[in-house]
Amino acid sequence: MNIKTITAIAALPFIAACAQSPSSIAPVSMGNAYANVSCQQARADLIAERQTLAALEGKQKGAVAGDAIGVLLIGVPMSSLTGGDVSGHIAASKGRVIALEARLSSCGGA
């Protein structure tokens, strides 16, 4: 093996630990979690959850950039290692948005 191959293999655990792009994070299914919520409450919750999701996506983009810089400079995805990766929160928030949108689709004139 040459040095490039060894370096690439050694870097795999660090690259795998890097934060995911927000768009590549799959939502967590919430099922019928909002089935008993009123249409008015579902609308308010959806607005709030979309704001939460936007904030989380902004934080995640920062973690992605931080990891890229960390891996480039020192070989370590710093944001992921220091808690900057919020992919689990994004997955849950995306799931809540989908569930709330599904609830509103049954309200008529959502």
Score class of each variant (00 low, 15 high):
74 I>C: 14
29 S>F: 01
87 S>Q: 15
51 Q>W: 06
63 A>R: 02
46 L>I: 04
49 E>V: 02
98 I>F: 11
38 S>Y: 07
43 R>V: 03
59 K>I: 06
36 N>G: 03
37 V>S: 15
60 Q>W: 05
26 A>Q: 13
79 S>E: 12
75 G>S: 10
64 V>N: 05
58 G>T: 09
74 I>H: 11
86 V>R: 02
39 C>V: 08
101 E>F: 03
100 L>R: 03
101 E>K: 04
53 L>H: 05
65 A>N: 09
43 R>A: 12
84 G>F: 07
96 R>P: 05
83 G>V: 06
97 V>W: 01
22 P>C: 10
97 V>L: 03
44 A>E: 11
80 S>G: 15
32 N>S: 13
92 A>R: 01
92 A>G: 05
82 T>C: 13
46 L>E: 08
56 L>V: 09
59 K>D: 11
57 E>Y: 05
29 S>Q: 00
95 G>K: 03
92 A>M: 08
84 G>E: 10
80 S>L: 09
103 R>V: 07
96 R>V: 03
25 I>D: 02
55 A>L: 12
70 G>C: 12
23 S>M: 00
60 Q>S: 06
37 V>M: 15
68 A>P: 00
47 I>R: 14
35 A>S: 15
81 L>P: 05
43 R>S: 14
28 V>H: 07
101 E>S: 13
85 D>H: 07
96 R>S: 11
100 L>S: 09
36 N>D: 14
46 L>V: 02
49 E>L: 00
30 M>K: 13
27 P>I: 03
34 Y>T: 02
102 A>L: 08
54 A>I: 01
32 N>H: 03
32 N>W: 00
83 G>K: 03
103 R>Q: 13
52 T>G: 06
101 E>G: 05
26 A>H: 06
49 E>H: 01
87 S>H: 11
83 G>R: 06
88 G>D: 11
68 A>Y: 05
34 Y>C: 01
44 A>M: 11
58 G>I: 02
75 G>Y: 10
49 E>F: 01
30 M>C: 05
88 G>Q: 12
71 V>D: 07
45 D>E: 14
86 V>N: 08
28 V>P: 00
21 S>G: 02
68 A>V: 09
100 L>E: 04
29 S>H: 00
100 L>M: 12
82 T>L: 15
25 I>T: 04
70 G>Q: 09
67 D>H: 05
92 A>V: 04
21 S>E: 13
44 A>V: 07
63 A>Q: 05
102 A>S: 13
68 A>D: 02
100 L>W: 09
69 I>H: 12
77 P>R: 05
58 G>H: 06
25 I>C: 02
60 Q>D: 08
64 V>F: 07
21 S>A: 14
37 V>E: 15
86 V>H: 06
101 E>M: 10
24 S>T: 14
83 G>T: 08
95 G>L: 04
34 Y>S: 01
104 L>E: 12
95 G>Q: 06
68 A>I: 10
77 P>K: 10
51 Q>M: 04
102 A>Q: 13
43 R>Y: 12
96 R>I: 04
63 A>F: 05
69 I>R: 14
48 A>L: 08
104 L>P: 11
81 L>M: 15
103 R>C: 11
31 G>K: 07
63 A>E: 05
69 I>C: 13
